[in-house]
């Protein structure tokens, strides 16, 4: 009896955890199901009959695929720019001492602590006040995305850098590596995983952003904006195809990364 009680209490917390995880997947199941759904009518967003049409013709809804392309372009550019700028900042913050470091940290922290609606609104206020109200679009979205991705990149890379023993670079220089060699042979390979996760995070943030984008988009439509517009009218099932595909891609990427890591460990 005591043993049973012990078993239950040992596993209860795991069971609760599993239930919470399952709850997190409920909408995903719906999205996957809906991607194979043929709705009874155009305006009915309900499960009805099975079809592969949505997967075979993902671009059928007007503007969906072009919005995806726009999101990809902005996502890639914003990721590139914010990763480069943010990585440089992280290096400055960890490896150099300079005046104004505390102030810099606050400026980096603030965008993460600000509600998106305020950041979006304030950028719009700026663009309007300098007479850019008429040219809102691709470039203003990009500017905004780089801005809010930047802080997350800095924080991610900084954490990795702080976890790195700075004596490794000194050891490299002690072993006849010049500053540049020490950086490329030792520092960079060790920080790279941090830079990579920062870039992935930046891309995910940029690709998924709606609120800030919505304020500064003008006539340009990103994928989240397409979904938003569709949600006001009738929702094409194809958005679930995109959602499912993104989910599958991400899971495959993560799992293959993990498998690669495990295999590399086993080889050694």
């Amino acid at each position: 009896m005591i043993r049973l009680g012990r078993w239950v209490s040992d596993h209860a917390i795991m069971a609760i955890g599993a239930v919470v995880l399952a709850y997190m997947f409920v909408p995903i199941v719906i999205v996957v199901l809906m991607s194979f759904n043929r709705p009874a009518s155009r305006s009915a967003y309900t499960l009805d009959a099975f079809t592969l049409d949505n997967w075979l013709h993902p671009c059928e809804p007007e503007g969906l695929c072009s919005s995806l392309v726009t999101s990809m372009q902005i996502g890639l550019l914003a990721t590139f720019a914010s990763t480069v700028l943010g990585t440089l900042m992280a290096f400055a913050l960890v490896r150099h001492s300079f005046r104004g470091r505390a102030a810099t940290n606050v400026v980096i922290f603030l965008p993460m602590a600000s509600p998106e609606v305020v950041m979006g609104a304030s950028l719009l206020a700026l663009f309007v006040s300098v007479g850019f109200g008429g040219v809102l679009g691709f470039w203003t979205i990009l500017v905004a995305h780089i801005m809010f991705c930047l802080s997350f990149v800095v924080v991610t890379v900084r954490a990795r850098l702080q976890g790195m023993d700075s004596r490794l670079e000194q050891a490299a220089m002690d072993l006849y590596a010049t500053e540049a060699q020490a950086f490329w042979r030792v520092t960079f390979p060790l920080v790279f995983p941090g830079i990579l996760s920062a870039a992935l995070l930046a891309f995910a943030l940029s690709f998924d952003d709606f609120i800030i984008t919505n304020f500064n988009s003008g006539q340009t439509t990103t994928f989240p904006m397409f979904v938003w517009g569709a949600a006001q009218r009738d929702v094409p099932m194809q958005i679930n195809v995109v959602g499912t595909a993104m989910f599958a891609l991400a899971v495959v990427a993560v799992l293959s990364g993990e498998m690669l890591r495990r295999r590399r460990e086993r080889v050694q």
Binding site: D165, R167, L168, Q170, A171, A172, M173, D174, L175, Y176, A177, T178, V186, P189, L190
Partner: peptide, 20 residues
């Protein structure tokens, strides 16, 4: 002289071996 220009090498405290 820069560390990489001296005929001097160091065994660091807790070694500082390159983990990668």
């Amino acid at each position: 002289a820069k560390p990489y220009k001296r005929p001097v090498n160091t065994v660091f405290q807790s070694y500082a071996l390159f983990p990668h």
